[in-house]
Structure formats: C-alpha cells, structure tokens
C-alpha cells in the first residue's frame, strides 16, 4: 500500500516514548523519498497527458497526490517529533547528552542541539538585569537552603561554592546547599531524603 514505509517511521516513534531516542532511520527515509520521486514522476507524466486532452488519468493524479502529501506529512512529523525530543532532553539531561543517545542522533540534530544549548544559555545569561538566571534550577519551589541527600552512585569529589569539597561515595549521606546539588539529583546521582 502507498505510504506504508512512511508510517513505519511514525510507528517507530510511537513505540518509543519517555526519553528514548531511536536511531535515526535514514534507510527508511530514503526509501520513502524514492517512493515520492516515483509518484511525482508518474504524476508529471499523467498531468502532461491530461493537459494534452486525455482526462481519464485525472483520478490517478489525485490519488498519487494524496499519497505524496501523506508521505510528506509522515516525514515532517518524524523529524519534528524527534526535534521535540531533543529539546526536552536539554531540560532533562542537561547540556551534555549521554553517549548512547548522541549516537542515535543524526548530524543535523546534533548541530541543532548545540545551537539550542547556546541560545538557551545566552538567554539565561541575559535575564535578571545582567546577573543571569538559571531556568533549569528550582523546577519545584525550594523550601530550604540546605537539603539532605544520599549518593546513589560513586561520583567522586564535588566542590561546593564555599570552597569545601565533599567526596560523593555510594550510600553516603550529605547535607548540601540545594542550589548546587539539584542538577545531581535530577541526573540520578543523588537522592533527596527527608
């Protein structure tokens, strides 16, 4: 059936939700583009025939045109939804993505991610009358300046702003300034205990 390959792409995205990034499916995209080329050429031929006065091909032109539009929609939706995921990952993972996710992105997506990173950073710097404001901080309203955290994995030395360093070892608990350990909590290295 027409446009089935394009639907495969959509199905693939639909199956992988919640922060998964399926590998960029360049092969299928190429097949879809080839299908579109063929459809377009056939349409051109039939349109020429129609213009020449043979109107019986007209219904076929409509049918192929619908398939072309469907293919286009699937391809654009595939790219757009992937980009949306890349954008969400900036907020969830931080400015550096894990290597296995990066490996599943195509070159333009990586460039886009870096640009988005840069734009976001310069926007955050421009906030607060020149002092800058980290929008990725304080996703939930903070209640205390210091919080108790437990390490979930070995992280190594961690320097806090006052100049002290703490060694974040697995299963140790610490009392740290919230502003500085939030990102580690979001990334699953620390756990907030109460």
């Amino acid at each position: 059936m027409l446009a089935d390959k394009a639907l495969e792409l959509i199905r693939e995205l639909d199956r992988t939700k919640d922060g998964q990034m399926p590998a960029f499916n360049e092969d299928t995209i190429r097949i879809v583009l080839e299908e579109m080329n063929t459809l377009f050429e056939q349409n051109q031929r039939d349109v020429n025939a129609t213009v020449a006065g043979d109107v019986r091909y007209f219904s076929g032109v409509h049918l192929r045109h619908a398939a072309l539009e469907r293919n286009r929609r699937c391809l654009l939706a595939y790219l757009y939804n992937r980009l949306e995921r890349v954008r969400d990952m900036r907020w969830e993972f931080g400015s550096i993505l894990p290597a296995d996710i990066r490996a599943n992105m195509c070159e333009p997506e990586i460039i886009w991610f870096n640009k988005y990173n840069k734009n976001l950073a310069s926007y955050m710097r421009s906030l607060g009358e020149g002092t800058g404001l980290d929008l990725t901080q304080d996703i939930k309203p903070p209640k205390n300046l210091y919080i108790e955290v437990r390490c979930l994995q070995d992280y190594g030395e961690f320097e806090i702003e006052e100049g002290d360093t703490v060694v974040l070892q697995k299963n140790t608990t610490h009392y740290l300034p919230m502003a500085q350990c939030q990102h580690l909590i979001r990334q699953g290295i620390l756990e907030h205990v109460e």
């Binding site: 969400d88 993972f93 919080i147 909590i185 699953g188 907030h192």
Partner: peptide, 9 residues
Amino acid sequence: HILTTSTMV
C-alpha cells in the same frame, strides 16, 4: 517539594 530524578534520566 522533594526533588526526584527526572523521568527521562
């Protein structure tokens, strides 16, 4: 108010 690991991570 307790912070948790983000879902994607």
